[in-house]
Design a protein around this nucleic acid. Structure first.
Lengths: 116, 116
DNA sequence: CATTCTGGTATCCTTTAGGTAACTGGCATC
DNA sequence: GATGCCAGTTACCTAAAGGATACCAGAATG
């Protein structure tokens, strides 16, 4: 099987696809928060600084539709709701790890550049 | 030197920093186009499908301000303008490669899921 | 019995990203 | 001398993202 050699147009297309799925300020932070053990609505909200209930609610629905997050209602009293990430969501990890690395380095770069 | 162990709040912060820099449909595609040898304004426009001159112009200024792209005017007749990516821009490569991979796989997933 | 927690909705509003289209001035080409 | 290429700029507009605020019912806590 030949090694895949993508041309620039294809690469751009794939990057735009990815950007489309993770677009916005909140989707990745929400998935990260859930993945790290925050499964309740309010826990997620606390873990993701400055997000409002309205936005969190909307984004969670979005992520559920895209099969990145699963919502489970437990019929206890009172009812509890739990959000978990899907295996497909976890496939984003290598990319997210690179984004963490880059963001960390970027802060360091800014810190060095700014003090003028 | 201790291994860095970031907590979830820090990770989210760094990811949001990264998202902020690469936000939008166009910045990464533009950088990719330049990096792959499209250095003239019209060449970049042709390499990035569907981008308009207005948006390209605005995004290039943005990227220049953030030291990801350099604009050089050659005083020939007629004047030619050349855009190049900076070394700092190239530090995005590992992340972009992961985005390409994920987007490629995502298309395959959709293709398998859809035919119902 | 007042407050606080849960998991959200409902309204309203502002900001931003991005798109459409027209236009410019200088050079080259047909 | 009309057309087209280059590298953009300008003005206008729309859709979407996101923020502010208030509110709801049910249960628990003090």
């Amino acid at each position: 099987m030949a090694k895949k050699e993508l041309n620039i147009e294809q690469k751009i297309k794939y990057v735009q696809d990815t950007l489309f799925v993770i677009s916005g300020k909140w989707k990745l932070p929400i998935m990260m928060a859930i993945n790290s053990g925050n499964n309740r609505f309010r826990d997620i909200q606390r873990a993701v600084p400055n997000i409002t209930t309205r936005v969190l609610s909307k984004e969670l629905k979005d992520l559920e539709e895209n099969r990145l997050v699963v919502r489970t209602v437990y019929d206890s009293l009172p009812v509890t709701v739990s959000y978990t990430v899907t295996p497909y969501c976890k496939s984003l990890k290598p990319m997210v790890d690179e984004m963490i690395k880059w963001g960390e380095n970027h802060r360091a770069v800014l810190k060095k550049a700014k003090p003028a």
